[in-house]
Design a protein around this nucleic acid. Sequence first.
DNA 1: CTGTCGTGATTGATATGACTTTAACACCAC
DNA 2: GTGGTGTTAAAGTCATATCAATCACGACAG
Lengths: 245, 245
Amino acid sequence: MRGLVTVRTTELTSGDLHTGVLDQLGALITSAALAEGDVLKIEQLETRFGVSRSVVREAIRVLESMGLVRSRRRVGVTVAPHGEWNVFDPRIIRWRLDGAGREVQLQSLSELRRGVEPVAASLAAQRATPEQCGVMTGAVMDMAVHGKSGDLTAYLDADVRFHRALLAASGNEMLAALTDVVAEVLAGRTHHDLMPARPNPAAIRLHADVAQAVQSGDPTAAETAMRDIIDEAAQAMLGDSGGDF
Amino acid sequence: MRGLVTVRTTELTSGDLHTGVLDQLGALITSAALAEGDVLKIEQLETRFGVSRSVVREAIRVLESMGLVRSRRRVGVTVAPHGEWNVFDPRIIRWRLDGAGREVQLQSLSELRRGVEPVAASLAAQRATPEQCGVMTGAVMDMAVHGKSGDLTAYLDADVRFHRALLAASGNEMLAALTDVVAEVLAGRTHHDLMPARPNPAAIRLHADVAQAVQSGDPTAAETAMRDIIDEAAQAMLGDSGGDF
DNA sequence: CTGTCGTGATTGATATGACTTTAACACCAC
DNA sequence: GTGGTGTTAAAGTCATATCAATCACGACAG
């Protein structure tokens, strides 16, 4: 009978109810709308979201497993300090990218990427299959084509394909799991107009260098070329955004 | 009344019931005792663990949020393909380290670390506070002392303290979140007798170099020195384990 | 006045039964 | 065979009852 009284606010998810509650609470916490130490009562949440106890509890459990909240008897559900968050949880990353902390999150991810991708390149040079090499070189060719034509969307797509293949070829599942992170960084750069109107040919060449080094099984060359890619991108973003300097 | 009938097997956790179920199921899945595609029925799990639906459901929800299982109506809870696992989830890492896959997991973590720590060093050189520098240099001194005396346990402790401080000083929460990972790699090396009986003095010097570079605000030097640390460790493990070669 | 102990109130944790929704599967008509 | 349709297993949701922890507060001894 609860559903008749309380209008279910912001029916974001068509699927399971707990997902909706989870998403909303997660977004609130990660956006600091709920600050560390804030206390939630399960009963409040039931009425607030117009769902039953089971649903709220399941959402809370998941939030707890992400380290976002802690649940204690007689006290309630309290928002945990940032230091306890599982900041690698894809949902948390997503919430922060979608919320106010987008810039900060992208900064963190970029720094992480700078460490991860060179290692992935090095490992890929030792482990990549011919198929994976093919995907990479194909992606580089597409980058060249769309870079020349100035189609930034298609360029981004090829770029993501390249990095996805590289991370997969690293043969390390943890590195591979960061594919979405890297893709997000690349996309963020494009969508924030931090890309030059026409991609730097040098960047494309560097991608080709990586592909070449991976294919010929040269870990060191692959690693340094990949580091150059990231440094080049950083340079491009620091310089004028739009010119070809 | 269920509790009177079914003996609660392996009461591993003193705390919440769902944690116990979660741990057991998680360990089973990550150890491949439950393979991809295997199907679990909630009702089965109720009787198997001697707990109520609420408890099972909450555990399943968390497993689902980790990407270990997927729950679908009319079919049950199925073990998800490895590619969907949130391999950065601390619990998953823990389960794998404690289970049969320990070696593989440590290998993944080592490779990840090789990418992460140099970046962390670079960032720390730009952001570390004097206090953090103090902790690092103090840790290096302890490493020197215990290294000379051959007390590997105390050496490990100082080593972990050093790397913990460095990652924290990076000012990047994602890098900082990998502290436990790095600590685990370092500990694994010691506990698997992959350390020389007496730590290489060169390794200690490299740690000092990093601390020095961080303190003087030299990102490049910090990064390369950190890379040297990791390469040295790899060398030491490849070489004879015990001698001073 | 202070500290200890007991007791009640508050809130999460668990158990359970009833009902709803989804979708796999089988059956039937064509 | 192809396609529509009904059956039904299993998860999803709701509501309620009871258990258990623990915090607040007050009584009481010192």
